[in-house]
Design a protein around this nucleic acid. Structure first.
Ligand SMILES: [Zn+2]
Ligand SMILES: [Zn+2]
Ligand SMILES: [Zn+2]
Ligand SMILES: [Zn+2]
Lengths: 130, 130
DNA sequence: TACATAGTGTTATATTATAACAATTTTGCA
DNA sequence: TGCAAAATTGTTATAATATAACACTATGTA
């Protein structure tokens, strides 16, 4: 079963839920939603989330402790993530901007250090809320 | 007492602790450290932290749930923050790069939306750990 | 003084996340 | 095919992070 799509049963259930959601989902919201499917305890949810984040299927919105499905081509396996977050309605959109990604991926600080990963969160008002 | 430096007693105690620290501090680490000074309960710590974040004296490192003192000129009151985070030793440095700030402050997405605030976290290895 | 705003102290509780252990399923490969 | 390693699952308990609610005190300004 695992081979077919490389997601395990719990991972698939939880990914489907996140993928269908129009807003970021929190771990315990997910837990309550999937209890009817037999996922009953927090570790089951967190383990699936960890794996999905690791493989770039989902991203964690750090400022919200919530998870969204990746809408890009897996963000070079999550080395370069950027989001816009509405401060009014909580909406989150993944930003897919090649120039921005390039700029930040190539960024080096004053000591000349380059970084191998970044996460960027923009805050403001979405179109609806403006 | 408040007027002298615009920080209240608890705010000053907690700011001093964070400011002197060479690494990000977590709320409960702070709580344990200041109990001898009479700050005994989580809400006292979180309220001070909230105010210090709000006024730009400290920043929250979202990926670590920890707090650092601002090392810039208060980051235009925390509208534009960027950090480098070592994945090995946990060290965090605030990035102060005018070009980067300008680039991101002026960034507008494909729909032309501009954002009023951002937080950027870079991950990699610091000089020591490389 | 008197009022509004900000800060404090306290108890309890909500929310987010992991440790630890036993069992089963899947996978890669001899 | 058959076996061991790796991944996944299930479960209980607990750790770590954060807020609600309420009573009270200090401060700034009119
Ligand atoms: Zn993505
Ligand atoms: Zn909105
Ligand atoms: Zn700063
Ligand atoms: Zn380091």
């Amino acid at each position: 079963m695992y081979k077919e799509n490389n997601l395990s049963k719990n991972q698939q259930i939880i990914f489907d839920l996140i993928d269908k959601s129009s807003e970021p989902l929190k771990a315990y919201t997910i837990l309550f939603s999937v209890q009817k499917k037999g996922i009953k305890a927090p570790p089951q949810v967190y383990r699936a989330l960890d794996k999905l984040v690791e493989t770039g299927k989902i991203h964690k919105i750090e400022s919200k402790n919530a998870f969204v499905a990746c809408r890009n081509s897996n963000c070079e396996i999550s080395k370069a993530t950027a989001f816009s977050i509405c401060e009014s309605c909580e909406m989150v959109d993944e930003i897919n901007d090649a120039k921005l990604t390039k700029y930040l991926t190539n960024f080096s600080d004053k000591k000349g250090t380059k970084y191998k990963r970044f996460n960027l969160e923009f805050f403001g008002l979405c179109k609806k809320c403006k």
